[in-house]
């Protein structure tokens, strides 16, 4: 029996009817067509499918869609503000933090959750947060640099916003 699922995805309320066994990743990729979230394993061990649910990084292959009923889900497609890339996205580009790009949305979404929590992480803290994210291309160091660069960009952005507010 299909059940109703009400979630907010990238700011848009969505109403779906799904089989209870449906995983969140299936809803994202197959039902909503948001294919920027990828799956690279069948054992919940690569973290490529990571999305942000109510501010927390979650492997979308390891959770039933109905478990996030009523919650807000952010995928990589929802990160940019209109035509402007999010500072994390820009930092990933500028630091060559991806090659094939297949695991990238998971890395970026985990970074989003990390920087919301810890705006100035060290190399070791980034390693700890992203340790479960497998990447076969980069060797991770350039991702780590991108995450710390993103932190600086977000901080600078906030300072600019604050000083503009102050000026007003």
């Amino acid at each position: 029996m299909k059940q109703q699922l009400n979630i907010v995805v990238n700011g848009e309320p969505r109403e779906l009817f799904i089989e209870p066994k449906t995983l969140l990743v299936q809803v994202i990729r197959e039902h909503l067509g948001l294919t920027g979230t990828h799956q690279a394993c069948d054992s919940s061990s690569c973290a490529a499918c990571t999305v942000v649910v109510d501010g927390m990084a979650v492997k979308s292959c390891s959770i039933l869609a109905l478990q996030v009923n009523g919650r807000e889900v952010l995928t990589v497609e929802g990160l940019a503000q209109g035509p402007n890339l999010h500072p994390i996205q820009q930092a990933f580009i500028d630091n060559w933090a991806f090659q094939c790009g297949f695991c990238t949305s998971g890395q970026i979404m985990a970074t989003k959750a990390l920087l919301d929590e810890n705006p100035d992480p060290t190399r070791e803290e980034v390693q700890a947060q992203l340790d479960g994210h497998l990447c076969r291309c980069t060797g991770y160091n350039m991702i780590n640099e991108a995450v710390r660069d993103a932190a600086k960009r977000i901080k600078a952005q906030k300072e600019t916003a604050n000083s503009e507010k102050g000026a007003k």
Binding site: H38, E77, Q89, Q90, I93, F98, T104, S105
Partner: peptide
């Protein structure tokens, strides 16, 4: 030089066969 496929790959727009 940043990757010319960068914007597509960081926004989820890049289409792989599996997508």
């Amino acid at each position: 030089t940043p990757n010319v496929d960068g914007p597509a790959k960081v926004t989820g727009e890049a289409r792989y066969t599996i997508d």
